[in-house]
Simulated assay, not measured.
Amino acid sequence: MAAREYGQYCGVTRALELVGERWALLIVRDLLVGPRRYGELAAGLPRIPTNVLATRLKELQAAGIIRRAPRSRIIIYELTDYGRELEPVVLALGAWGFKAMGDPRDEQVVTPDSMTMALRTAFRPHVAAGLPATAYGTRFGDARLLVRVDGPTLDVARADDLPGSDETVDLAFSAGPGIRRLIAGELDARQAVASGVVEVLHGPDTLLDRFASTFHLAA
């Protein structure tokens, strides 16, 4: 199946042959969030050429990593059990890459699926287990997410409208790419609010400390 072969008999080599082509792991990343239609995958990867997306999907299917499935008269793409085994790999790569992210460039965007996986990467279940259950309404650029933490369990879902004053969330806030500094521990919650990195929309500011404790990655 491999579009590129390295001529070495090695597990790492074979893994790169299967998912090392450009865009392949980002397709896997988005499918780790949930099944997606072709158009949803294209929208979540705005720079991918359509011919490349079609090719990668065929390659990943041939490798047994994803499959096409009919769903209410439409075709969706989803990971197979074999494909879902890539989740710890993707999360580990996200944590490793976080150390070298730096400041964003003007043309770089945050998508709901990329932010969902970033939160899953930064989540500390051992810390969350000792904290009260908390629901966050978050907006990171155009990515609006409902983040629920209940003990060591994390659930992240897309939210069409930021809850704001909705009492179903304990804290609603918006942030730009500078949220990286809060997650990295470069800013505490008070500094993040004072500097404008985070804007609290609803709920007590003190819950931002809880968020920062629950989601943390060392830069």
Rank of each mutant, 00 (worst) to 15 (best):
Y9H: 08
T153R: 15
H216L: 04
A129S: 03
L79F: 08
E107A: 14
Q8W: 05
A122F: 01
V169C: 13
W96E: 10
E186G: 09
H216G: 05
L187E: 11
L25S: 04
R124F: 00
D170G: 15
P132N: 15
D209S: 09
R124I: 01
Y6K: 03
Y77L: 04
A219Y: 12
R158P: 08
R56Y: 10
T206L: 14
L25K: 06
V89M: 12
Q8N: 04
A63I: 04
G83E: 01
A54G: 06
D150C: 06
G44K: 01
A15E: 09
A194V: 05
I179M: 12
P125T: 01
E21C: 09
A172Y: 14
D155A: 14
L201E: 15
I75H: 05
G83R: 10
D106Q: 14
T80L: 00
R139N: 01
S195H: 01
S165W: 13
T111Q: 15
R148S: 08
I75F: 03
V52T: 15
G141T: 00
T13G: 13
A194D: 11
E78C: 04
Y82W: 08
G20Q: 09
I76Y: 05
T13Y: 07
S72C: 05
E40G: 02
P163H: 01
L217H: 07
L182C: 08
I183C: 05
T55H: 07
T168G: 11
A69C: 08
N51I: 02
D30C: 02
G97N: 11
P104A: 15
I66K: 05
G164H: 12
L79D: 07
R84Y: 00
A157D: 11
R180I: 06
L187I: 04
L91C: 03
S165G: 15
T138Y: 04
A143Y: 01
G44N: 01
R181C: 05
L32P: 03
E85L: 04
L31E: 06
V52G: 11
L60K: 13
M101E: 15
I74F: 12
Y136M: 02
F215C: 07
A100V: 12
A3I: 13
P163R: 00
R210N: 14
L201P: 07
P152T: 03
E78G: 04
A184Q: 08
E186D: 12
R14W: 13
T55A: 04
A63G: 08
G7P: 09
P70G: 03
M101I: 15
P152R: 06
E59Y: 07
Q61A: 08
A15G: 08
Q61V: 07
L91F: 07
P104Q: 12
Q191G: 08
G102R: 11
S165V: 13
D30Y: 02
R73M: 11
R139K: 04
G185E: 06
A218W: 11
D155T: 13
L217M: 08
A62K: 14
A100C: 09
A218G: 10
E199Q: 11
G102V: 10
L217A: 05
Q108F: 13
A135P: 01
G83L: 03
A43V: 00
L208T: 03
A194F: 01
R144P: 02
L53Q: 03
A2T: 14
R14D: 09
R56I: 09
G178C: 12
P46I: 02
L53S: 02
L93M: 14
G141H: 00
L60Q: 09
G83Y: 06
G94C: 06
F215S: 06
A54C: 03
